[in-house]
Amino acid sequence: MKILMFMLLGVLTQAQPMMKEKPVSKGEVLQFRLAYGWFTIGRGSFKVSDDYVMRDGKKCLKIDVEGKTAGLAGVFSRVDDRWGALIDSDSFLPYYSYRDLSEGDYELEEEVYFDYDSMHIQFEQESANEEQPRPTRYFDIEEEGVFDMMGGLMYARSIDYRKLNKGDTVQLDAFFDKKFYDFKMIYHGIEMIKSKVGEINCHKVVPIMEKNSVFVGRDAVTFWVSADANRLPLKVSANMKFGTAYCELTGYKNVKSGIDFQ
């Protein structure tokens, strides 16, 4: 479950041209199916706050994500993960993010604060499985523009892909779980895909993966975002050592353009 949620939230971008009219709207709700091969293993939701939250004089969006096991997966290991963030509604830079993980016998609580005056990140993490509390850690922000997972997804949806050519490379920068990530993503143009919400033209992007023990190949992960006013994250697929994993959109409401799909 955690890997699939990372797939969905991990396509992060920086320093690319954004659409003037942002595709994300207040109150937006997205529903996802998490699958491994033919089997549904989980369900997820992505919710944007109905109203802005003010932080440092700026309008911010509060985002909450939930991921739970479903089907046979729940028999073997029950997962109930919650993620969230408070991000600038214009730049999508984060002010605060959290994770509350419950995966079988494993539990973890995490809070991250982004301070742009002192240019550092305050990272707090606590596990119910450990007797001693983990110390607070601080990380320097070398330059303003580091995204968390939520802000990164919003930014990825807001890129003006019309200004990119097939084969162009996009830089990917993010902070997640005590680490700074520096990825690259290749734009593969527009592709029609069949999804649970219909046949839709999508912008196709492929992150270049470093060698790791989870994904197979440098181009193991593919991400599709709808080529319309909503820029919906339609699908993520990943080739893994024991098969192909998917995260796909199954429903939405309160989107920028069009009617709800439930």
Rank of each mutant, 00 (worst) to 15 (best):
2 K>A: 11
3 I>D: 07
3 I>F: 10
5 M>R: 06
8 L>P: 03
13 T>R: 01
13 T>A: 10
13 T>L: 11
14 Q>D: 07
14 Q>K: 10
21 E>K: 13
25 S>P: 01
26 K>G: 02
32 F>D: 03
33 R>I: 03
35 A>S: 15
37 G>I: 10
40 T>L: 00
41 I>Q: 12
44 G>E: 03
44 G>N: 04
44 G>A: 11
45 S>F: 02
46 F>P: 04
47 K>W: 00
47 K>P: 01
49 S>F: 01
50 D>V: 03
50 D>F: 00
52 Y>S: 13
53 V>M: 05
55 R>D: 07
58 K>M: 09
63 I>C: 14
65 V>N: 03
66 E>S: 15
67 G>H: 02
68 K>N: 15
74 G>H: 05
76 F>G: 11
79 V>L: 07
79 V>F: 14
80 D>I: 06
81 D>I: 11
82 R>F: 04
85 A>W: 10
90 D>F: 01
92 F>Y: 15
96 Y>I: 00
96 Y>H: 07
97 S>G: 11
100 D>F: 04
103 E>K: 05
106 Y>F: 11
107 E>H: 05
113 Y>V: 10
116 Y>V: 10
117 D>R: 08
119 M>K: 12
121 I>S: 05
125 Q>T: 12
126 E>T: 12
126 E>D: 14
127 S>F: 03
132 Q>N: 09
132 Q>E: 14
135 P>Q: 00
136 T>H: 02
139 F>P: 03
142 E>H: 07
143 E>D: 10
144 E>I: 15
145 G>D: 07
145 G>H: 06
147 F>Q: 14
149 M>R: 06
150 M>F: 10
153 L>R: 06
153 L>V: 05
154 M>L: 05
155 Y>N: 14
155 Y>H: 14
158 S>N: 15
160 D>K: 04
161 Y>N: 06
161 Y>S: 08
161 Y>W: 02
162 R>S: 07
164 L>I: 11
164 L>C: 10
164 L>Q: 08
165 N>Y: 06
166 K>V: 05
170 V>G: 06
171 Q>N: 05
171 Q>V: 08
172 L>G: 15
175 F>P: 04
176 F>I: 09
179 K>L: 06
181 Y>Q: 09
181 Y>V: 08
185 M>A: 14
188 H>C: 13
191 E>Y: 07
195 S>I: 08
196 K>E: 14
205 V>C: 08
205 V>M: 12
207 P>T: 11
211 K>G: 09
213 S>L: 10
216 V>R: 15
223 F>H: 13
224 W>A: 00
225 V>Y: 13
225 V>I: 15
229 A>L: 04
229 A>P: 02
233 P>Q: 06
234 L>Y: 07
245 A>R: 08
248 E>H: 06
250 T>G: 04
252 Y>W: 04
253 K>Q: 15
253 K>W: 06
256 K>I: 02
260 D>C: 03
